[in-house]
């Protein structure tokens, strides 16, 4: 599904059933349809059987809609929303290991960290680890500043997003097995599980 790409990134949020193989299904669909993904994060929600994904794509709104409709087609995907049409919060987290073996670099790093929402979470004689949380843009600006001191290792979680206000992206669905068991219990009347 090649399409003219633009530079802006779109954010798609999906609620999925927390079942084995779901991530594989989603990754397989992206590969099969040749969708280009910038980042994909997945984590649990307050409902143990539901996970939530944030998918960032470098694309225009039409492309994001194609991704959304194809995601929605997967049986294990409960709900999908393209977040860019509404105000939302986004956060990306990075752990960055930097050189820390002389006074100059130690000072520079402390000074940069002071100006950003960043913390030094581990310090050793040669290297230190910085934890930085923020929007993707701020994170990238921070990384650019730290680069000259010498990044030796880095990991980013990828962006997670949530819409602002009261338009809640959630579901009351209780998991399938429980539903069927409840129905069967009611039917057999003996409380025995299926």
């Amino acid at each position: 599904m090649a399409e003219t790409k633009t530079d802006n990134k779109m954010t798609v949020v999906a609620l999925v059933e927390n079942e084995p193989g779901v991530l594989n299904r989603i990754a397989s669909m992206f590969r099969r349809r040749a969708f280009n993904i910038d980042s994909l994060t997945v984590g649990r929600t307050h409902r143990p059987h539901i996970s939530r994904m944030t998918i960032r794509v470098v694309a225009g709104p039409e492309y994001a809609m194609k991704i959304a409709t194809n995601l929605q087609k997967l049986v294990n995907v409960i709900d999908v929303r393209v977040l860019d049409n509404e105000p939302h919060i986004e956060r990306d987290l990075a752990l960055i290991k930097v050189r820390n073996d002389d006074a100059d670099s130690r000072n520079t790093i402390t000074e940069i960290c002071d100006r950003y929402p960043a913390r030094i979470v581990d310090v050793g004689p040669e290297v230190a680890i910085i934890e930085m949380v923020g929007t993707e843009t701020i994170l990238e600006a921070f990384i650019e500043e730290v680069k000259p001191t010498g990044i030796v290792e880095m990991i980013r979680t990828g962006v997670v997003s949530m819409g602002r206000g009261t338009r809640i992206h959630d579901t009351n669905f209780i998991n399938r097995r429980a539903l069927v068991e409840a129905a069967s219990k009611a039917r057999s009347g003996n409380g025995r599980l299926v």
Partner: peptide, 16 residues
Amino acid sequence: ETEFIYPETDIVLPGY
């Protein structure tokens, strides 16, 4: 082996 009970209720699939 297990107790065979065919679910008579409609299928409820949250994402389908």
